[in-house]
Design a protein around this nucleic acid. Structure first.
Lengths: 117, 117
DNA sequence: GACATACATTCCGATATAGGTATATAACCT
DNA sequence: AGGTTATATACCTATATCGGAATGTATGTC
């Protein structure tokens, strides 16, 4: 075997900076492809291809309107990423500092509740 | 130009399932390479290479102990991902539902505060 | 119908990897 | 020193893309 497919899930879809950029633009509201092309200063086929990847992963939805395709973001597909990353939040979030202290105290003085022995 | 480098940042480093797996294992505590090899049932070179990528991105730190290298997770490098994904959290989190209602009300009946018109 | 517009897809070439095997390096042991 | 263990790196191959250009397809307009 060789290189694994990298666009099959949200993690990979979002690993590409251009695709994150597309999502960031769409976060402000749905847009047709051409508007995205203008905003991103990218080739139309490139944008279409990135949108294809995002669509396959469920990160965007399309609505047909005449000859235009309006793309809308579907942030829900980002939840798996959020859930995974969240478990590591304690590494940097000060919110957990207090909790860690409490947990350390509990571990230390179980059966007592006091940490000064 | 052609394909862009994909392992240069945390987003890409974490897009590879094996690497997420490695981080998940290390989340339970630091480990030397060989232990990771055993736990993950992967080839030693493969593990070393994945660790190399994670190290380059700052997701893990190494400590030398004799001929062993103890790898420790550095979740802090996941913060950029968390920060980015977080902005989309409203898409799925019910926490934001109430907030959205409030905001809609504000927008609707500004100067009044009541939403039943 | 002829033409333009909006978008998707196909084909191409370049390159970045992922896995596998073999090898290099360094530390430990006898 | 010689051998074993732990880990990293080099090399090879297959493949997954990325960007770019050309083409296909559907819709709107005259």
């Amino acid at each position: 075997m060789a290189r694994a497919a990298t666009t099959a899930d949200a993690f990979n879809a979002v690993a590409e900076p251009r695709r994150r950029q597309i999502l960031d633009v769409l976060a402000d509201g749905e847009l047709p492809v051409n508007d995205l092309v203008r905003v991103l200063a990218l080739g139309q086929p490139q944008v279409s291809k990135h949108l294809r990847v995002l669509r396959d992963v469920g990160l965007v939805h399309v609505r047909e309107e005449g000859r235009r395709r309006i793309y809308r973001i579907n942030g829900h597909s980002l939840k798996p990423i959020h859930d995974w990353v969240k478990t590591y939040e304690r590494s940097w979030s000060e919110r957990f500092d207090r909790l860690d202290v409490v947990l350390a105290d509990l571990k230390h003085g179980e059966g007592d509740g006091r940490s000064d022995e």
